[in-house]
Each structure stands twice: as C-alpha cells, then as structure tokens.
C-alpha cells in the first residue's frame, strides 16, 4: 500500500461561456494605430486570455481586420481597462498584450457579430489546495408496516473549492488565480468553466509498480463559480478561494497507461474537432 501526496496534484481549467454574446463592432470603434477595437456589449464579459470566435451574423467579411475576407475568426484576446480588445494568435501573446504581436486593423463597416469562447485546458497556477464533494440524494420510500427505513438513489450533485495564492501576471502559459475573481463578475455569460482535478498525475508513482507510472486519475467537471473571496492581511500571503457547484456530470476518470498509443497513420495526434483536446495519447489526458 502507498500514500499519495497532495504535492503532486494539479488543477486544469478550461474557459467556458454560458451561451454566446451578440453585439456590434462599429467601424468608428476601431483604433488602427493602437490595433484595438471594442464590442458594444457591456465590459467584463470577455477576459484577457479568452480564445474567442467572432462570427459575422449576416455573413459579411470581418473587414475591421486588415485584408481579412472571412466572416469568422478565432483568436486570443487581450482586454484593457477600458474594454478595448486586441487580437493575438497565442495565449502567451494575449496575456502579454501590446501592439507588436496584434494583427493590423482597419476602419471597416459596422458589423453584427456573435462571440463564443472555447479555450484549451490550462494548468491553474498557484493552487494551494482544492476539494471536490459529490453528494448523492436519496428518496425515502419507507411505507407503513416497514421496520427499517427504505431509500432509493436519486440525483448526484457536486461542489467544491479552489484555494490559491493570488497572482495576476508573470505566467503566459497557465491560468492565474485572478481569473477566478474575474470570472464570477461576468454578468451576461455566467461564471462557467470546465476543470480536471487530478488525484494522481503522470510521472508520480508511489506504488512502485513501473507500469502505473503514467496513470492519471482525475475528476472531470463543468461548473459555475458561486463565490470568490480574497484574504488580504499584513504578514500573510494574499490568498483567494473560489467555491463552485457542478452543472452536469461529475466523472472520475481513470486514464491507465496502455501499451499502445492511438495515433493517425502518419503518427500524428488525433484531435477533437476544435483541436482543443488530444484523443487517445498516453499521458495526454485521454477522455
């Protein structure tokens, strides 16, 4: 028997949007010098690092991007304090911001657009602890003359909490805890997220059984942040906590190391339709 340490756990977060945003990009809201534009919906719905797809509802070209002729575009975004948005090709560039890596914009026509978010999973940095609770409700079916209380299984619900040391910058590959504080303040599109909460990660193997080295066990959930708090006091590290409830199935995934890897004929990885998840690759989080 072995003892597993929390030191080797991790949380992966995937940004989600509850529904879609519909609004306008007005031609005169495009600042070509700053490579920045804005939507006409409320600020705070989009957060720096979001990978958004902008689709022109009427099928017109998104001509506010220089030389762009398609009606749909998927990019990472950086959002400034005034709600101005810059587009980028990578999460790292979006987090770092600036005009250097943003595509040139041009003053185009007024566009009716819808915006959706679909990000890849990213490690949630600075996590000091997490917990997830699953609860099974039961329905009492005890009837007259029974000596013992009878119950049958009913619905399952989940809830939990992330605790982390607060951080907002300095890492351009991971999600930072400040994102959870921003997430709960989104008004129109909810505080949804998807997450994997790892109990056992690959390359951590207290069992001593070699073949179990790359096994991964994790909870896979989709949820809503229901409460977020910052604990700020002198002489203590600034910490945040974020409570969540699940919005669908709570799955305990067991990704055991298998003696083969599912790949394409050319040896390439199999990807889901949106290229956000690898399928069937040992150690990649097969689902």
């Amino acid at each position: 028997m072995s003892v597993y340490l929390g030191t080797f756990g991790k949380v992966e977060l995937k940004r989600k949007l509850d529904g879609r945003l519909v609004g306008k990009i007005n031609g005169n809201d495009v600042n070509t010098a700053e490579k920045r534009f804005s939507f006409d919906f409320d600020q705070g719905q989009l957060i720096t690092g979001d990978r958004i797809t902008i689709k022109e509802i009427d099928g017109n070209a998104l001509d506010f991007i220089s030389s762009y002729t398609d009606s749909s575009v998927t990019k990472y975004i950086n959002v400034d304090e005034a709600g101005g948005i810059r587009l980028y090709n990578s999460f790292a560039n979006a987090v770092n911001g600036g005009t250097a890596n943003a595509p040139a914009l041009s003053t185009g026509s007024n566009l009716n657009v819808q915006v959706t978010i679909e990000n890849k999973r990213r490690l949630l940095a600075q996590v000091s602890s997490y917990e997830i609770n699953t609860e099974r409700e039961s329905v009492d079916t005890t009837v007259l003359s029974d000596n013992f209380r009878q119950r049958i299984s009913s619905l399952i619900s989940g809830s939990g909490r992330f605790s982390a040391f607060w951080e907002y910058a300095g890492d351009d590959s991971s999600e930072l805890p400040n994102y959870l504080l921003q997430l709960i303040l989104r008004t129109k599109v909810g505080s949804n997220f998807a997450a994997r909460l790892y109990i056992k990660d690959s390359n951590y193997n207290p069992s001593g059984v070699a073949i179990r080295n790359n096994d991964q066990l994790y909870y896979k959930v989709e949820g809503i942040i229901t409460a977020a708090a910052v604990q700020f006091s002198p002489s203590d590290a600034v910490q945040i906590t974020a409570d969540f409830i699940t919005t669908g199935p709570v799955e305990l995934k067991v990704d055991l190391e298998v003696p083969f890897a599912l790949t394409q004929e050319d040896g390439g990885k199999l990807l889901e339709d949106d290229s956000s998840e690898e399928i069937g690759i040992v150690g990649s989080g097969t689902s």
Binding site: T142, V143, L144, S145, D146, N147
Partner: peptide, 8 residues
Amino acid sequence: TGRHGSLL
C-alpha cells in the same frame, strides 16, 4: 408508529 399501520 407507521410501522404498525396499514390500509385495506
């Protein structure tokens, strides 16, 4: 208690 009840 309910344990002693029935209905015909």
